[in-house]
Amino acid sequence: MSERGVERIRRTARRIGACTTRGELGSVLGEEAGRYTLHDLQRIGGGIKREVDPLPEPYRSQVRPYFEAQIFGAYHRLMHAHRSGSFRSMDDPIADPDRFKEFAALIEEGCLRESGKSGTDFGFSDPLHSLFYYLVTGYLMFVENGPGHPVGTPFPGGFVVEQRGDEYFCPIRDKEQDVPFSICNVCPAHQMEGV
């Protein structure tokens, strides 16, 4: 990776970590996500496809739309809100500043550490594409205040991410602790009971 790419990741991580309101964070995430080209987005989509294709059926067909919604659905909502100026009126603080600081601290090393050791490659094979993943999941969790994986995302065993009132429950929330740079470790969802 070029020194310019490394510095971009480091600068972006610092900018994200300095945010205190949802609107400020949304603006930073929107600016950074807006730097990705159509070619970048196509390569990121290819990374998702490479991650999903080896999964066994019928799970592969069930999970594919949720992974695409997690990445590209969030990206489109982020860019729409950014371009429409919606973030200017969001002056409420980030809901859980400690969890947010933990998230911001993951970004640099999660992108730059050797992917086989960090668990953050996501099939993208490019640290800037891993950064994109952190941008859109940061939007999901700290601007939209939702879970990192969309409600309904299926996991092996027949369990799905659920919403109950204003709270989210995930079957794998506490099962990713051995992957130090996983967004699951900072997700607002609770571990689903009995899983």
Score class of each variant (00 low, 15 high):
residue 42 Q to N: 08
residue 42 Q to G: 12
residue 42 Q to W: 07
residue 44 I to M: 08
residue 45 G to A: 13
residue 46 G to M: 09
residue 47 G to K: 03
residue 47 G to H: 01
residue 48 I to E: 03
residue 48 I to Y: 11
residue 49 K to L: 06
residue 50 R to Q: 12
residue 51 E to T: 14
residue 51 E to K: 11
residue 51 E to P: 03
residue 52 V to F: 03
residue 53 D to L: 13
residue 53 D to I: 10
residue 54 P to T: 10
residue 54 P to H: 04
residue 56 P to L: 01
residue 57 E to T: 07
residue 58 P to G: 06
residue 59 Y to K: 07
residue 59 Y to H: 05
residue 59 Y to G: 09
residue 59 Y to P: 05
residue 60 R to L: 06
residue 61 S to D: 10
residue 61 S to C: 08
residue 62 Q to G: 04
residue 62 Q to M: 15
residue 62 Q to N: 09
residue 62 Q to H: 10
residue 63 V to M: 10
residue 63 V to Y: 07
residue 65 P to Y: 02
residue 66 Y to H: 14
residue 66 Y to S: 03
residue 66 Y to G: 00
residue 67 F to S: 08
residue 69 A to R: 15
residue 71 I to C: 10
residue 74 A to I: 05
residue 80 H to V: 14
residue 81 A to P: 01
residue 82 H to N: 02
residue 84 S to H: 09
residue 85 G to V: 14
residue 88 R to Q: 14
residue 88 R to M: 10
residue 89 S to C: 07
residue 90 M to P: 05
residue 90 M to K: 15
residue 91 D to Y: 10
residue 92 D to S: 15
residue 92 D to F: 13
residue 93 P to R: 14
residue 93 P to W: 02
residue 93 P to H: 11
residue 94 I to T: 01
residue 97 P to R: 12
residue 98 D to K: 13
residue 99 R to D: 00
residue 99 R to S: 12
residue 99 R to Q: 13
residue 100 F to S: 07
residue 102 E to W: 07
residue 102 E to A: 15
residue 103 F to P: 07
residue 103 F to A: 06
residue 105 A to E: 12
residue 106 L to D: 01
residue 106 L to N: 09
residue 106 L to I: 05
residue 107 I to T: 03
residue 108 E to G: 02
residue 108 E to Q: 12
residue 108 E to V: 11
residue 108 E to A: 09
residue 110 G to V: 09
residue 111 C to S: 00
residue 112 L to M: 08
residue 113 R to I: 14
residue 117 K to L: 15
residue 117 K to Q: 12
residue 118 S to R: 03
residue 122 F to Y: 15
residue 122 F to P: 05
residue 123 G to K: 04
residue 125 S to R: 15
residue 126 D to P: 05
residue 127 P to K: 09
residue 128 L to R: 01
residue 129 H to G: 08
residue 129 H to L: 06
residue 131 L to Y: 01
residue 131 L to K: 02
residue 132 F to D: 06
residue 133 Y to I: 02
residue 133 Y to W: 13
residue 134 Y to D: 06
residue 135 L to G: 03
residue 136 V to A: 03
residue 137 T to D: 05
residue 138 G to K: 09
residue 138 G to C: 00
residue 138 G to V: 08
residue 139 Y to P: 00
residue 139 Y to K: 01
residue 139 Y to T: 02
residue 140 L to E: 05
residue 141 M to V: 09
residue 141 M to S: 05
residue 143 V to W: 02
residue 143 V to M: 02
residue 143 V to E: 07
residue 147 P to Q: 06
residue 147 P to W: 02
residue 148 G to V: 05
residue 148 G to L: 04
residue 150 P to M: 09
residue 151 V to G: 03
residue 152 G to Q: 07
residue 155 F to K: 00
residue 156 P to N: 10
residue 156 P to F: 13
residue 158 G to T: 10
residue 158 G to I: 12
residue 158 G to V: 05
residue 159 F to L: 08
residue 159 F to K: 13
residue 159 F to N: 00
